[in-house]
C-alpha cells in the first residue's frame, strides 16, 4: 500500500500477546498521520489465552467500527493458526502477514486434536500476498519476549500508508518512557524482517 484513502486492518492472535497495545500504537500513528480511525475489540478476558481480534479502520471518515468478512486489506496474525481462523476476512487483493509462532490451544495441548498442518499452503489459497515472519525470534534477540507485538507492527508498517517516523512518534507518545527504546528497536527489527517492496 502506498498512499491510500483508507483501509481495513484486522489484527488477530492469542490473549496475552499484546495485540491491544499494538493496535493502540497503530491507531495513534494513524491519528498522527491525519486519518480518522476507529478500532474495536473485546477485552475483559484477553489475558486468558483465548483468540483475540482487533478491527482497525482508517480513512477520511470512518463509520462502522467493525470490518466485514471479505473486506480486510491487511490481516496481521500474531500466531500462525490464528491467521487461518481469520483469513476469510481478507478482500480479494488483501495481504496476510503471519507470525510463524505456534501457540497450542487446549485441545491440541491436551492431545485431543493436532495443530493444523500446511497452514501456509491453506493461507495461499486465499492470497498470493502471504508473508510469514519469525517475530518471536526477533523479539528474543532483543532480549524481550513481550516485544513480539511491536515487531509485528514494524513488519506490518510496510503495508500501511504512513511514514516510518510516524510509528516511532506514536510509540513515544503512547508508551511509558522506560520501555520506549526497546520498542523502537522492536519496531525497526520488525520492519527489517521484510524487504522494502512488498
Amino acid at each position: 500500500m502506498s498512499v491510500v484513502a483508507g483501509g481495513n486492518v484486522l489484527l488477530a492472535g492469542v490473549g496475552g500477546q499484546g495485540i491491544l497495545l499494538a493496535s493502540e500504537v497503530l491507531c495513534e500513528a494513524f491519528l498522527l498521520g491525519g486519518y480518522d480511525v476507529k478500532k474495536s475489540e473485546v477485552h475483559g478476558m484477553a489475558q486468558r489465552g483465548g483468540a483475540v481480534t482487533t478491527h482497525l479502520r482508517f480513512g477520511p471518515k470512518v463509520n462502522s467500527p467493525l470490518i466485514e468478512p471479505g473486506t480486510a486489506d491487511l490481516l496481521v496474525a500474531f500466531e500462525k493458526m490464528e491467521a487461518l481462523r481469520f483469513v476469510h476476512y481478507l478482500s480479494p487483493g488483501g495481504a496476510a502477514l503471519a507470525n510463524a509462532q505456534e501457540i497450542y490451544p487446549p485441545s491440541v495441548a491436551t492431545g485431543r486434536e493436532r495443530y493444523p498442518a500446511g497452514i501456509e499452503e491453506r493461507l495461499r489459497e486465499f492470497t498470493p500476498r502471504l508473508f510469514v515472519v519469525d517475530a518471536l525470534a526477533a523479539a528474543l534477540s532483543l532480549g524481550e519476549v513481550r516485544a513480539v507485538n511491536i515487531v509485528m507492527v514494524g513488519a506490518a508498517s510496510h503495508f500501511l500508508p504512513l511514514e516510518k517516523e510516524t510509528y516511532t512518534d506514536a510509540l513515544r507518545a503512547f508508551l511509558p518512557e522506560k520501555i520506549v527504546e526497546v520498542n523502537v528497536r522492536a519496531f525497526r527489527a520488525g520492519r527489517g524482517l521484510l524487504p522494502a517492496q512488498v
Binding site: R48, G50, R85
Partner: peptide, 27 residues
C-alpha cells in the same frame, strides 16, 4: 453492516467460508 445490508436489501454477498481451525477458548 453486512447483516443490516442483507436484511434490508436481501441477497447475500459472496464471502468465503471460514477455515476449519481448532477452537481457542479462553483458559
Amino acid at each position: 453492516p453486512r447483516i443490516v445490508r442483507e436484511g434490508i436489501a436481501g441477497g447475500s454477498a459472496p464471502v468465503r467460508a471460514p477455515e476449519e481451525v481448532p477452537s481457542r477458548p479462553p483458559n
